[in-house]
Amino acid sequence: MGKPTKFLTSSVGRKITLALSGFFLCSFLVVHLVINLFALKAKPDGTGAEMFTQYGDFMATHPIIRPLEWSLFAGFLLHAVLGIFLFIKNRQARPVRYDMNRPSENSTWTSRFAWLTGILVGAFLVVHINTFFIQSRFIQHRPMIDFIKEAFASPAYVTFYMVALVFLGYHLKHGLQSAFQTLGLRVGRYEKLIDAIGVVFWLLIPIGFAIIPLYFLFAY
């Protein structure tokens, strides 16, 4: 038989790496959402945000979080760079396009455009990280809750978040079941379970994130 492959230069190995980094980022989404939901305890009189602020301080200052933070950045970078790399490779596999193509009859648009929803989520992240992480950690040195109150007072900014969360939802709708398939786990007997986990991720997590800006815009 022919030669063995090198994991990271083989198509399947790269796909598995993309899937694993995707799962890692999904685990971060859960942690991120759970902590952020504590911000909902903030009351207009300025009280209630103590626990959220404590979490924020812990995340920003405790040494145990530093390696996790760097792993998270590395995970984002790996997922994005590998995703774009595979997208380019895949375009090269069909140098001449079809004159007439009806892909909507054989596949979902979320699966065909996962690269695009991914890029849009990535673009959102640049703005998002600047508004909160960079401003509070490196520039203004104020508690996170202040930035949340200020940013989500603007209807335009909240709308931008809602749109970004829709794209995140679509990206996860394809990405999560795709990652299970790439790891070889999406088979008959687990399909329903994977679909259920999928709904939690692509529907409930973006909704959970959406509640926070809406709370600060309308109820606060």
Binding site: S11, K89, N90, A93, N106, S107, Q181, T182
Partner: peptide, 13 residues
């Protein structure tokens, strides 16, 4: 991979 086929992105087309 050597033949130049693309990478599967699970569209199931």
């Amino acid at each position: 991979d050597a033949e130049g086929f693309g990478n599967c992105s699970n569209t199931y087309a």
